[in-house]
């Protein structure tokens, strides 16, 4: 593995040029048909599937030496998964890295969209475990492909119907299905539904990579993504009804953290960069000291 660190062009970012070309083709096709799942020949990556090999391959195919990479896992830059992937690209591509959303050109993410609005020119790469939104009720791949082709999406609403019948409301709180530009229904990966509105009309390029399932899909900038719902049970982008205990933010997605054996809890921004940025500007929450 020692040559992985080399800056030589043809091992840049781990994948060989032919593989990258194949993945880029899939990405371009995905961008041309927003929300459509493009099959691609997923490669073995030196990490387990659960670690987001699909996202890693998409990132590898996108990175240029000038890029600045940010990697988040559930919003945090410092989890094992995020740190490993970031190190991997530092080693194999020698790219600059950052934790600041505003400074990153490429952001690989698992389960969140950053709170800080993205801008044109940025690329957000999602790690996707199960790309097929219809899988829940229709396990046959041949059939789901047909359903996408023929726009037969009644089944998606059956899933939401079941939610309401069982829980009194749409209980799906993450991987909440969206319809893209009135055409393809897409699984946005397991982001909280709180993040769904950010999928739509986003100036950044959004790319989705599923390694085990060998699918890539994409949203070009400014693409419309509508969360499915019922007229009498409209979609709501809900979050815990609290403010961040560290930075006081009222409109960011929160993680609940148990703080001691007595079961005391606190709510903190899941987006660590966003929270730190606010504290650096002097905002504080119930338990926070200004940084």
């Amino acid at each position: 593995m020692s040559d992985l660190g080399s800056q030589g062009d043809y091992t840049f970012a781990y994948l060989d040029e032919q593989t990258k070309r194949m993945i880029r083709r899939a990405i371009l096709k995905g961008i041309a048909i927003p929300g459509y799942q493009v099959p691609f020949a997923s490669r073995e990556m030196p990490m387990p599937y659960g670690w987001g090999t699909g996202g890693v391959q998409v990132t590898a195919a996108c990175l240029t030496p000038e890029d600045r990479l940010k990697v988040i896992d559930q919003g945090a830059d410092d989890t094992t998964n995020a740190v490993s992937i970031r190190r991997f690209f530092q080693r194999t591509a020698g790219v600059a890295v950052t934790e600041a959303t505003t400074e990153a050109t490429v952001i690989q993410t698992r389960h969140r969209i950053p709170e800080t609005p993205l801008r044109e020119g940025q690329v957000l790469v999602y790690q996707v475990p199960i790309p097929e939104p219809l899988r829940f009720l229709e396990p046959r791949e041949t059939e789901t492909r047909k359903m996408h082709e023929l726009e037969e999406y009644g089944l998606m609403h059956v899933k939401l119907y079941e939610d309401i019948a069982r829980h009194g409301q749409i209980a799906t709180s993450y991987a909440y299905p969206v319809k893209i530009e009135g055409r393809y229904v897409m699984d946005p990966s397991p982001i909280p539904k709180f993040d769904n509105p950010k999928l739509s009309g986003n100036p950044a390029i959004q790319l989705f990579g599923a390694g085990r399932e060998q699918r890539i899909y994409a949203l070009p900038p400014w693409t419309e993504a509508v969360s499915l719902d019922f007229e009498d049970h409209p979609f709501t982008a809900s979050k815990a009804p609290h403010d961040c205990d560290l930075c006081g933010a009222r409109d960011s997605y929160l993680d609940e953290v148990i703080t001691d054996d007595a079961g005391r809890r606190m709510f903190v921004c899941s987006d660590t960069d966003f929270c730190a940025g606010r504290r650096a500007k002097g905002h504080t929450g119930r338990l926070g000291d200004p940084a």
Binding site: E152, G154, L155, V158, Y161, I164, F230, H233
Partner: peptide, 14 residues
Amino acid sequence: VGERLMAVGARHYG
């Protein structure tokens, strides 16, 4: 029972 209704565009749960 509702599936066919939803398949042809029904969007009101009640």
